[in-house]
Amino acid sequence: MSHGPSATGGAALQGAPHGHHDDPYVPVLTPGSTPRAKLDDILSRYPTRQAGLLPALWIVQDERGWISEHAMKEVGDVLGLTAAYVKGVVTFYTMYHQHPVGTWFIQVCTTSCCNCMGAEDVVKAFLQQTGCGELGLTSPDGKYTVIEVECLGACGFATPIMVNDDFIDSMSVERVPEILKKYC
Protein backbone atom coordinates (compact mmCIF):
# COMPACT_ATOMS: atom_id res chain seq x y z
CA MET A 1 0.00 0.00 0.00
CA SER A 2 1.16 3.51 -0.58
CA HIS A 3 1.07 4.77 3.03
CA GLY A 4 4.39 3.19 3.83
CA PRO A 5 5.53 3.56 7.43
CA SER A 6 7.59 6.68 7.92
CA ALA A 7 10.61 4.85 9.28
CA THR A 8 11.32 3.37 5.85
CA GLY A 9 10.50 6.45 3.86
CA GLY A 10 7.17 5.34 2.39
CA ALA A 11 6.39 5.14 -1.28
CA ALA A 12 8.65 6.76 -3.84
CA LEU A 13 5.71 8.56 -5.38
CA GLN A 14 5.44 10.92 -2.44
CA GLY A 15 8.44 12.81 -3.77
CA ALA A 16 6.59 13.73 -6.95
CA PRO A 17 5.99 17.32 -8.06
CA HIS A 18 2.99 19.18 -6.68
CA GLY A 19 0.70 21.75 -8.17
CA HIS A 20 -0.88 19.76 -11.00
CA HIS A 21 -4.46 20.77 -11.58
CA ASP A 22 -7.17 19.69 -13.93
CA ASP A 23 -9.32 22.84 -13.83
CA PRO A 24 -11.80 23.07 -15.34
CA TYR A 25 -12.59 19.42 -14.80
CA VAL A 26 -14.13 17.59 -17.72
CA PRO A 27 -16.20 14.66 -16.39
CA VAL A 28 -15.32 11.15 -17.56
CA LEU A 29 -18.41 9.21 -16.52
CA THR A 30 -21.13 11.38 -18.13
CA PRO A 31 -24.34 9.40 -18.76
CA GLY A 32 -24.34 8.16 -22.36
CA SER A 33 -20.54 8.20 -22.70
CA THR A 34 -18.52 5.09 -23.54
CA PRO A 35 -16.67 5.00 -20.19
CA ARG A 36 -20.01 5.28 -18.37
CA ALA A 37 -21.51 2.45 -20.42
CA LYS A 38 -18.47 0.36 -19.53
CA LEU A 39 -18.92 1.13 -15.83
CA ASP A 40 -22.67 0.41 -15.91
CA ASP A 41 -21.97 -2.97 -17.51
CA ILE A 42 -19.42 -3.78 -14.77
CA LEU A 43 -21.85 -2.65 -12.03
CA SER A 44 -24.37 -5.28 -13.18
CA ARG A 45 -21.94 -7.96 -11.95
CA TYR A 46 -22.09 -6.91 -8.31
CA PRO A 47 -24.85 -6.63 -5.69
CA THR A 48 -23.62 -3.19 -4.50
CA ARG A 49 -22.60 -0.03 -6.34
CA GLN A 50 -19.58 0.41 -4.11
CA ALA A 51 -18.05 -2.76 -5.56
CA GLY A 52 -17.65 -0.76 -8.76
CA LEU A 53 -15.12 1.54 -7.08
CA LEU A 54 -11.86 -0.10 -8.15
CA PRO A 55 -13.15 -0.66 -11.71
CA ALA A 56 -14.39 2.96 -11.90
CA LEU A 57 -11.00 4.27 -10.79
CA TRP A 58 -9.33 2.15 -13.46
CA ILE A 59 -11.65 3.60 -16.09
CA VAL A 60 -10.83 7.16 -15.02
CA GLN A 61 -7.10 6.48 -14.94
CA ASP A 62 -7.22 4.86 -18.39
CA GLU A 63 -8.96 7.97 -19.75
CA ARG A 64 -6.94 10.68 -17.97
CA GLY A 65 -3.65 9.03 -17.00
CA TRP A 66 -4.17 9.92 -13.33
CA ILE A 67 -6.87 10.42 -10.71
CA SER A 68 -7.37 14.02 -9.55
CA GLU A 69 -9.39 15.23 -6.57
CA HIS A 70 -12.11 16.28 -9.02
CA ALA A 71 -12.15 12.79 -10.47
CA MET A 72 -12.47 11.30 -7.00
CA LYS A 73 -15.50 13.47 -6.40
CA GLU A 74 -17.02 12.47 -9.72
CA VAL A 75 -16.52 8.76 -9.04
CA GLY A 76 -17.97 9.21 -5.56
CA ASP A 77 -21.05 10.98 -6.95
CA VAL A 78 -21.68 8.21 -9.46
CA LEU A 79 -21.32 5.43 -6.87
CA GLY A 80 -22.94 7.16 -3.89
CA LEU A 81 -19.72 7.61 -1.89
CA THR A 82 -18.10 10.74 -0.44
CA ALA A 83 -14.99 12.18 -2.09
CA ALA A 84 -13.13 11.61 1.17
CA TYR A 85 -14.01 7.92 1.15
CA VAL A 86 -12.87 7.55 -2.44
CA LYS A 87 -9.60 9.28 -1.58
CA GLY A 88 -9.07 6.85 1.27
CA VAL A 89 -9.32 3.98 -1.18
CA VAL A 90 -7.22 5.61 -3.91
CA THR A 91 -4.36 6.25 -1.48
CA PHE A 92 -4.35 2.62 -0.32
CA TYR A 93 -3.44 1.14 -3.69
CA THR A 94 -0.07 1.83 -5.29
CA MET A 95 -1.20 1.67 -8.91
CA TYR A 96 -3.51 4.69 -8.88
CA HIS A 97 -1.64 7.90 -9.73
CA GLN A 98 -2.60 10.91 -7.64
CA HIS A 99 -0.74 13.29 -9.92
CA PRO A 100 0.26 13.24 -13.58
CA VAL A 101 3.23 11.04 -14.47
CA GLY A 102 5.51 10.87 -17.49
CA THR A 103 4.23 9.57 -20.82
CA TRP A 104 6.06 6.36 -20.01
CA PHE A 105 5.69 5.16 -16.45
CA ILE A 106 8.48 2.67 -15.74
CA GLN A 107 8.24 0.32 -12.77
CA VAL A 108 11.21 -1.87 -11.87
CA CYS A 109 10.98 -4.72 -9.35
CA THR A 110 13.77 -4.60 -6.78
CA THR A 111 12.52 -7.12 -4.22
CA SER A 112 15.02 -9.80 -3.10
CA CYS A 113 14.58 -12.36 -5.90
CA CYS A 114 15.33 -9.67 -8.49
CA ASN A 115 17.70 -7.78 -6.22
CA CYS A 116 20.09 -10.72 -6.05
CA MET A 117 20.10 -10.77 -9.86
CA GLY A 118 21.11 -7.13 -10.25
CA ALA A 119 17.80 -5.22 -10.24
CA GLU A 120 19.34 -2.19 -8.53
CA ASP A 121 21.70 -1.67 -11.47
CA VAL A 122 18.73 -1.72 -13.84
CA VAL A 123 17.09 1.04 -11.80
CA LYS A 124 20.27 3.12 -11.86
CA ALA A 125 20.59 2.73 -15.63
CA PHE A 126 16.99 3.87 -16.17
CA LEU A 127 17.36 6.86 -13.85
CA GLN A 128 20.48 7.98 -15.68
CA GLN A 129 19.40 7.37 -19.25
CA THR A 130 15.90 8.82 -18.90
CA GLY A 131 17.17 11.98 -17.26
CA CYS A 132 14.81 11.43 -14.32
CA GLY A 133 17.71 11.45 -11.89
CA GLU A 134 15.59 10.52 -8.90
CA LEU A 135 12.97 7.89 -8.19
CA GLY A 136 9.42 9.17 -8.61
CA LEU A 137 10.40 12.36 -10.44
CA THR A 138 9.38 12.98 -14.03
CA SER A 139 12.13 13.71 -16.56
CA PRO A 140 12.39 17.37 -17.70
CA ASP A 141 10.97 16.45 -21.13
CA GLY A 142 7.92 14.97 -19.42
CA LYS A 143 8.49 11.61 -21.06
CA TYR A 144 9.53 9.32 -18.21
CA THR A 145 8.86 8.54 -14.59
CA VAL A 146 10.81 5.69 -12.99
CA ILE A 147 9.88 3.98 -9.73
CA GLU A 148 10.97 0.90 -7.81
CA VAL A 149 8.19 -1.54 -7.05
CA GLU A 150 7.77 -4.61 -4.92
CA CYS A 151 7.59 -8.14 -6.40
CA LEU A 152 5.84 -8.15 -9.79
CA GLY A 153 5.05 -11.87 -9.62
CA ALA A 154 7.54 -12.88 -12.29
CA CYS A 155 10.60 -13.53 -10.11
CA GLY A 156 12.01 -16.29 -12.33
CA PHE A 157 12.29 -13.79 -15.18
CA ALA A 158 14.54 -11.33 -13.36
CA THR A 159 14.36 -8.43 -13.72
CA PRO A 160 10.77 -7.75 -14.78
CA ILE A 161 9.66 -4.19 -15.46
CA MET A 162 6.43 -2.55 -16.54
CA VAL A 163 6.25 0.33 -18.99
CA ASN A 164 2.70 1.62 -18.65
CA ASP A 165 0.64 -1.57 -19.24
CA ASP A 166 3.41 -3.52 -20.98
CA PHE A 167 5.13 -6.24 -19.01
CA ILE A 168 8.75 -6.85 -20.01
CA ASP A 169 10.80 -9.61 -18.43
CA SER A 170 14.50 -10.43 -18.22
CA MET A 171 15.59 -6.79 -18.18
CA SER A 172 19.29 -6.11 -17.84
CA VAL A 173 21.44 -2.98 -17.85
CA GLU A 174 22.43 -3.81 -21.44
CA ARG A 175 18.81 -3.77 -22.62
CA VAL A 176 17.92 -0.35 -21.18
CA PRO A 177 18.78 1.65 -24.36
CA GLU A 178 16.72 -0.73 -26.50
CA ILE A 179 13.69 -0.25 -24.25
CA LEU A 180 14.04 3.54 -24.23
CA LYS A 181 14.25 3.53 -28.01
CA LYS A 182 10.99 1.60 -28.21
CA TYR A 183 9.20 3.90 -25.76
CA CYS A 184 10.23 7.37 -26.87
Binding site: M1, H3, G4, P5, A7, T8, A11, F92, T110, T111, S112, N115, C116, E150, C151
Partner: peptide, 17 residues
Protein backbone atom coordinates in the same frame (compact mmCIF):
# COMPACT_ATOMS: atom_id res chain seq x y z
CA UNK B 1 21.98 -9.39 5.72
CA UNK B 2 21.41 -7.30 2.61
CA UNK B 3 18.85 -9.66 1.08
CA UNK B 4 16.97 -10.07 4.35
CA UNK B 5 16.96 -6.31 4.88
CA UNK B 6 15.39 -5.96 1.45
CA UNK B 7 12.75 -8.54 2.36
CA UNK B 8 11.96 -6.71 5.59
CA UNK B 9 11.50 -3.55 3.54
CA UNK B 10 8.98 -5.44 1.40
CA UNK B 11 6.88 -6.25 4.47
CA UNK B 12 7.18 -2.72 5.81
CA UNK B 13 5.96 -1.36 2.49
CA UNK B 14 3.10 -3.85 2.25
CA UNK B 15 1.82 -3.69 5.85
CA UNK B 16 -1.74 -2.36 5.76
CA UNK B 17 -0.87 -0.48 8.96
Amino acid sequence: PKQLARLARFYAHESCA
